[in-house]
Design a protein around this nucleic acid. Structure first.
Lengths: 148, 148
DNA sequence: CAAGCACTTTACGTTAACGTCAACCTCGTC
DNA sequence: GACGAGGTTGACGTTAACGTAAAGTGCTTG
């Protein structure tokens, strides 16, 4: 809904002195996506993220943020971290990926798409069932007396 | 879509001698839904199923089959067994449910619906991204030479 | 009646995805 | 210079959702 324009010179949230790219700490990111820092470090350990370091501290660039967002979205859709990693890594290896890798990637993508279609159907079915139950519950409530 | 009429005398798959309802063993159900018997027993242990017994052996009626189907669908959508159980149990308790229970059920249903909407959006977004990656992978493949 | 097959219970094992300490650094600031 | 706020690395704990193996039951089939 709120389509934040990314072209303006507006400070997105707080810009570094120079016109560099915005970066975030692990804490900022964790609040931003409502996950714990532990979770973010775990994703790194699992090869889903690879933030730069500033000394010993992690700094996350927009690219890392995108990856995290994709990861969390994948999770909400029920994919395992391993599956998500596979796609992300292959995507990153794309420019110099060989034919076999690319074909494999296409395979995976096709699979994902199938699963998504199944989920779509599941969602529609479940919606209908929820509507049913909801309907019945409301009626039952009415039967229980018009007060409340 | 296929609204199986439950009134006809037709044998659904294999009818018991008399015109009773069709029932299944755990093995049949497990093949039918491509899960292991262990899984089905586990769901029972978790309060999601409650099949009759014939001696010591479980026999599943259409009602049980429906529950299993709903459970698996819920799982595909990423719900936990606990969440699924909550809804199923409340649904069963509906007829004599009190007002508080009914309201609680409505709450849960509303929540589920919200989650489903989020998932729908996630699916659309992920589809677009998959289409993108797919596109790029195909092009990269073409660039690699027109052979193979 | 032995064998096989499908089922049963019991119980311990496993994996994914984190949670939860503990012990340590490294700033800015009071 | 002590201190608190945020960060770091281990390392072990936990939970959900089953897997797996052992040992027994009951039918029916050669």
């Amino acid at each position: 809904m709120s389509k934040a324009s990314s072209g303006s010179t507006q400070a997105d949230q707080s810009a570094p002195p120079s016109g560099q790219q915005r970066t975030w700490t692990i804490g900022e990111l964790s609040r931003m996506f409502e996950v714990t820092p532990r979770t973010i470090r775990f994703y790194e350990q699992e090869g889903l993220l690879a933030p730069m370091r500033e000394g010993q501290r992690r700094i996350y660039h927009p690219q890392d943020r995108v990856r995290l967002k994709l990861t969390l979205r994948g999770k909400r859709l029920g994919f395992s971290l391993a599956e998500i990693r596979e796609v992300i890594m292959m995507y990153d290896a794309m420019p110099d990926g060989n034919a076999r890798q690319l074909r494999r990637l296409l395979e995976i993508l096709a699979q994902r798409r199938e699963e998504l279609e199944r989920q779509l159907e599941d969602i529609h079915l479940m919606r209908m069932e929820i509507d049913n139950v909801d309907q019945r519950a409301r009626e039952a409530l009415r039967q229980l007396g018009e007060d409340g």
